[in-house]
Design a protein around this nucleic acid. Structure first.
Lengths: 351, 351
DNA sequence: CAAGGAAGTGTGTCCGAACACAATATCCTT
DNA sequence: AAGGATATTGTGTTCGGACACACTTCCTTG
């Protein structure tokens, strides 16, 4: 463990003043080629690492981050992401970081567009972007690239961008896992209900459809021989959904299992619960409403995506990049958690 | 967001010097009751939070922690715990923390005893203790209590101690979960092999036996009607084990499923693999050897305990207590992860 | 009643880096 | 050669808190 060098030491070793060393370290220019060389040589020799504590103390102005994520209600998926962000704030309370949140309607691209003109002129050093609207995000990224502002993706990875990092789960593989979890509960000829929520302007590459692909892939590879029956529901009109489900039950009285690739499993399971229809349902995300139904047995499995961790690590990546110039791993697929009645009680609060 | 106050401000507001404020903040004594009162009043009024950056800069001497954990080989369970500790070191590299590791043989209480005289006289401010030998640990704790040194338990909680925190999984519940995972793969009358590794001086309350209790409890509650057949193996004599397993197979040619409550599942599964005997095995811990067998299908489920997180959070708790006087949650049951072929690839490296 | 000690208080330096600004060197005019 | 502009370089202060040390009281005790 070598002793640590200070700016002052470097100055001494290379025969210049601390001011010059500072200028070189921060690429502020106004340094002669000669001094530059001498200092750089010393820097290399001693493998200098600045004392970040001292730096943060001297540095007054806070780093400002923007988080651009979907609106959320308490207990929902994006609320958990937000909790992760808040946790990061606390974790780094020592350091001068500010996070401003801008929320859009994840079912309405225009609400996303509407935010940009408000955000862009503001002053900030980093960006967290939730990637529901890939094409829009692409444009935003080009803008940020030009201004040399680092950004982190959350939820879904977008190719051919210069994002600093990405945190999310592998949609296809999580669907594949859902396939296994469901298939081992049924016979190869049983029908499977596949619940979908209709959205306008659906991105064809969205994570729900990729999960579905993975799901179907698993069944296909394992010689599933039954029918997968899609049911289309609406995101808001609950009475309408009730009717759709009712008539679905009439048409398919034999069906006892299903899957849904978003976090609305609780809506489905509560329907079957009310009908006292024993139904094996697999859903996504350990949000409060789903947890309740998992605990009372109306949902058999949930697939967890560690939303808090996603939020936390997004902030952390930007923070460490800005303060310590640390480059994070770029693509970070988070663990895909299997949650059942028996382990859900312990699933919380760890990042 | 109120502006932040400095020691100097407090001194000014309460009409004393910064030195006095310092003495009060750090309970160093030598302060008149009058000054004490005045300052405390101001402290309360402004809800003072010291600037930790400045504190760490000013503080030169590092905090020294002792980690007392079992010996480990690369890729083993305690190696993962160690990785978590290392991660914590990196995470807090800014702050002056040193961790010294002392390792004992987890199957040999005397090796634990032998370490203590070496450790105790040393100078340290915190202690991480792995709780294999409860009675010995109890004694150690009393000693530490007297000297007012905080300590954290890892692995298993011990009642009636003043530990700062505990990080581990709930053994009984994890066994209960294992019960479910196994039971849903078999019929209520199928026999189940239960592999145990013999240990001398077994603590009757050890986590393996509690896992077994949970396991049996699940089966019992769910009307399991078959036989649970224990097989006793040795921790080191592998040829002997081979024989035992061979004769076990002869005696019970019908058996196709089993469980083991420590991290040696790979030893069992490789035996059945060599015999091309299709066997459903549930084990504990995502250590390298087990992961391999999970991936090729010789183990059906692993129960993960987040050893890295346990190591990481143990250090973190002590660190934050010492530096920030932050009192952590005392009993922390970590998530119990269900790991299968389909999600193991993503299970790593997140704390 | 003076010396000695303890209790209580304030001052000043340090931690290591950032940055504003002062100071010096260099070069070009005229 | 003096004056001015520009390119470099060095100095000093600041960030907020920790701690060593010196200083002041006040109370013992011989």
């Amino acid at each position: 463990m070598g002793k640590s060098y200070r700016i002052k030491d470097i100055a001494l070793l290379s025969g210049v003043s601390t001011g010059t060393v500072d200028r070189i370290l921060h690429h502020r220019g106004k340094v002669s080629a000669e001094a530059q060389q001498k200092v750089e040589k010393v820097l290399k020799e001693i493998d200098y690492h600045p004392n970040m504590i001292a730096r943060s103390l001297a540095l007054k102005k806070p780093y400002r981050l923007i988080a651009l994520i979907p609106k959320y209600e308490s207990g929902s998926y994006w609320d958990k992401v937000n909790q992760g962000i808040e946790k990061a704030k606390k974790e780094f309370f020592n350091y001068p970081i500010e996070i401003e949140q801008y929320c859009f309607d994840q079912y309405d691209q225009e609400s996303f567009d509407a935010l940009l003109p408000e955000i862009m002129p503001r002053n900030y050093q980093g960006f967290i972007i939730s990637t529901q609207f890939q094409e829009r995000v692409r444009k935003l990224c080009m803008d940020l690239d030009q201004r040399n502002i680092p950004y982190v993706f959350i939820d879904d990875y977008i190719n051919n961008t210069n994002c600093l990092a990405f945190y999310g789960t592998h949609s296809f593989e999580s669907g594949y896992l859902a396939g296994r979890l469901l298939y081992e509960q049924i016979k190869p000829t049983d029908s499977i209900a596949l619940f979908r929520i209709i959205q306008k302007k659906e991105d064809p590459e969205n994570n729900r459809s990729q999960r579905e692909n993975g799901f179907r892939d698993y069944l296909h590879k394992n010689k599933y021989n039954g029918r997968i029956i899609p049911i289309h529901l609406y995101s808001k009109e609950m009475e309408k959904n009730e009717h759709i489900l009712e008539s679905f039950c009439h048409e398919h009285p034999e069906i006892v299992t299903g899957v849904i690739f978003n976090s609305k499993a609780h809506a489905i399971s509560s329907f079957f619960h009310r009908k006292s229809w024993i139904f094996k349902l697999i859903g996504y995300d350990a949000i409060d409403a789903n947890i309740e139904h998992l605990q009372n047995g109306d949902i058999t499995h949930l697939i967890g995506q560690r939303p808090e961790s996603q939020g936390f690590y997004s902030v952390r990546a930007l923070f460490r990049y800005l303060l310590f110039e640390e480059i994070p791993e770029r693509v970070n697929y988070m663990p895909i958690d299997i949650l059942v009645k028996e382990n859900i009680q312990f699933y919380k609060n760890y990042l």
